[in-house]
Design a binder for these strands. Sequence first.
DNA 1: AGTTTAAGTCAGTCTTGTTGACATTCCAAC
DNA 2: GTTGGAATGTCAACAAGACTGACTTAAACT
Lengths: 170, 170
Amino acid sequence: MDDGRATTTRGGENLLFLTDEQLRQGIEAMFFAYRGFTADPDRILSDMAYGRAHHRAIHFINRAPGTTVNNLLNILGVTKQSLNRVLRTLIEDGLVESRIGKSDKRERHLFLTEDGHALEGRLSDAQRARMRAAFRDAGPEAVAGFRTVLEAMMDTEMHRTYQRLKESGA
Amino acid sequence: MDDGRATTTRGGENLLFLTDEQLRQGIEAMFFAYRGFTADPDRILSDMAYGRAHHRAIHFINRAPGTTVNNLLNILGVTKQSLNRVLRTLIEDGLVESRIGKSDKRERHLFLTEDGHALEGRLSDAQRARMRAAFRDAGPEAVAGFRTVLEAMMDTEMHRTYQRLKESGA
DNA sequence: AGTTTAAGTCAGTCTTGTTGACATTCCAAC
DNA sequence: GTTGGAATGTCAACAAGACTGACTTAAACT
């Protein structure tokens, strides 16, 4: 399959960055970095009765206000039953509002309340602070590379979702 | 704090890549990419009675054969009770061997058995294949940037662990 | 001898994922 | 216009995997 040794293409460009050792380092970097990525919001949430799932729901409701449950399901990639439990507690606690659809009464459109926005802000600020520090340390070219590799690592379906969100925000 | 508008340093370099919108895209890229990152091994493991926790244990035992339980605990960042459950099933199923330490008989040194190596290989191959495709698509400079940003995103303690592993392997 | 350290265990809780069953609503074919 | 299927969302029960806390055993250190 792959012996991990250095190799060279016909064109002569060096593919040393594709050795098994380089890939393994990439895998481990992903693992450790993701821990850092979630650490700050996790700390904030652990004080409440909330977890990472609540953070994700809040993030994407903020990102796409009025989104339906089904839409959120596709973004988050979990079952509707799993999302529903999270959503229920958020609605009960007055962080999220669920409005019955006008044209299709089966649908529920989701919005953050004032309290929901407040928590979203706290979580975002914490996560952005770390991302900002990392981006600043690494510099713009590294950031561009970072994004390019991450996009190439997504499943095509997720990549489409990501692009759609990106275009809606910018 | 941060109004998200473009800004410029004294030196005159453009810091447009540090806007809140850019950071949010980075956050979402991390989220979707991590899903892709774990998708292939998860699929393999779901057929067996194993999960992501088993994969992590197997990965790092393979990476640092003979590591002690305590050492693995520090790398994985979980409690010993949590790790122990995973380790016990792996040992029962004959994928991991636990040898009593020679100099310090309290320690248990962990090794993959032949079957353990076989599973590790399957999981690694799947994960590396995706990482390789992403790296190849993105190119060497993007990969360098990817690694730089990820390293900057780690907690300092994790970063040390990551560096130690990196040096031991290369 | 007494303390600390490494590993493992038992019991209980929490978050978050799963499946299965069910209610409501919409829509299209009859 | 009624009926049957598809879509949307909810409730209930269960499993994986994380956590805390209390405890045991064995070995090492002082």
